[in-house]
Design a protein around this nucleic acid. Structure first.
Ligand code: NAD
Ligand code: NAD
Lengths: 210, 210
DNA sequence: ATAGTTATGTTAATTATATCACTATTAACT
DNA sequence: AGTTAATAGTGATATAATTAACATAACTAT
């Protein structure tokens, strides 16, 4: 229960390491090293070891890491040893892409419900999940014990949807609307802002100006 | 030509500030302050001033910042005083969402070409942009003087597409495939990894374990 | 004019993160 | 058994980023 502070950058890298290890494992490789991992994902070997050291000792000196073992350890650290129930709100263009994305399920994220306000969409299905009216959000996500909500609605209603998700008991929100959401501190929130990503690129392309 | 190092976090925040200022401007507000901005986007006032200080003096002591002015300054800093030509590769679920997204055009990102390898998709249109065969990528993006490529193809072909984009002369790549790409140092690369975002959330939700 | 108020720009302090250099451990080989 | 090569783990160091503090400039009102 000690709360030693772990950099978010470390968590992001762990996620990347684990995916890399999945690939390495698929190739049938048994043992790897901090140097191999570093090369595979583009960081320094010391960084890899430092990141892992926050959580324990997973390797053997002089030898390296067992690929399967290390992968499992990292997945456990990230909370991916169990599945997560995810509610998707907004079945528009982005919502459709997200709900059809195989990569989530592979990592243990199961979209158990989809909500929208558009009467034309309600009742139709994406894959085998029916689009439900937004006013069922609390009932359904409680029933599914949904812990994560994804917001893929227009910015103008994103805060309102966030409030509903929190009321319904989710602990974490992934927000795609380009707007700053207010949530209580116990709710984990991450924003994915695609325009911002492009703008970092354009800044860097033009960076000789400074 | 002096290359004073500017934190990437600063660039990301500037992008957020500029969007916030767009909203504030729409409300007809003339003057704002570092405190207002800070509150609006959830950072500290000192952070706002520090970020701006990398690029110049945009405010008036005792008064604050002119909203329109500051917005324009930040847009110029980010390289958004001109439009950017963007090539989208991969017209699948995600590509469709991205190409129909209004938010890009609003910020000056114009998707001028879309490429795919699927014969059923080639020749069809998204909005008013025709989907072209991938082997036209070099010719077309050169002609459009496209500077940015977006990769929305399966991971297995993402590196190959990156190579093609670079050969075609793009300077920056936004990659959605969950794979580590190798590009020469002069090419700006950013990865958007949605699973990683969810995994940071699950780590934090379960963080009492450490 | 001058005092008082406000909010910037900037320097200093603090905190956080990454890198480096060293130590300890293991396996393989002679 | 002893030697060498390899590589994890770790404490010290360096770098980077954030926060706090403050001196300066502009505006207001008397
Ligand atoms: N499409 C993209 O590539 C993209 C990229 C970046 C960000 N975004 C952001 O993601 C969000 C969704 O984008 P999109 O392109 O899918 O938009 P969209 O208009 O295609 O879809 C929005 C969906 O939300 C539904 N909706 C509206 N109000 C609702 C409410 N109160 N409750 C429930 N559902 C409601 C609509 O019926 C619609 O189905 C937006 O905030 C957008 O800015 C989208
Ligand atoms: N859909 C999502 O929400 C989502 C989320 C996160 C990441 N991603 C990633 O984004 C990428 C695209 O995802 P998607 O869901 O749109 O997949 P998709 O299968 O729907 O679309 C992929 C498209 O790429 C095209 N393609 C395949 N090979 C090509 C080639 N060599 N040249 C040109 N085009 C080619 C296919 O014809 C298809 O149209 C994948 O790497 C995926 O992992 C998607």
């Amino acid at each position: 229960m000690k709360t030693l502070k772990i950099p978010e950058a470390t968590i992001i890298r762990l996620s990347v390491y684990s995916r890399h290890l999945t690939d390495v494992d698929r190739k049938g490789i048994i043992t790897t090293s901090s140097g191999d991992i570093a090369e595979g994902v583009g960081v320094s070997p010391a960084q890899v070891r430092k990141d892992l050291a926050y959580f324990g000792e997973f390797g053997t000196r002089g030898v390296g890491y067992n690929v399967k073992d290390l992968r499992q350890h990292i997945l456990r650290i990230l909370g991916l040893s169990v599945d997560w129930s995810v509610a998707l709100v907004g079945a528009g263009h982005l919502g459709l892409a997200l709900s059809s994305y195989k990569g989530f399920r592979e990592r243990g994220f199961i979209i158990t419900s989809i909500f929208d306000s558009d009467p034309d969409k309600i009742g139709t299905k994406i894959g085998d999940v029916e689009i439900l009216p937004i006013d069922q959000i609390e009932e359904v996500t409680r029933q599914n014990q949904t812990q994560i909500g994804i917001i893929a609605v227009p910015s103008s209603v994103a805060q309102e949807i966030a409030d509903k998700l929190i009321k319904a008991g989710v602990q974490a929100i992934l927000n795609f609307a380009p707007v700053v959401l207010n949530v209580p501190p116990e709710i984990e929130l991450r924003n994915v802002d695609l325009a911002v990503n492009l703008e970092v690129l354009t800044f860097n392309v033009g960076a000789q100006r400074f």
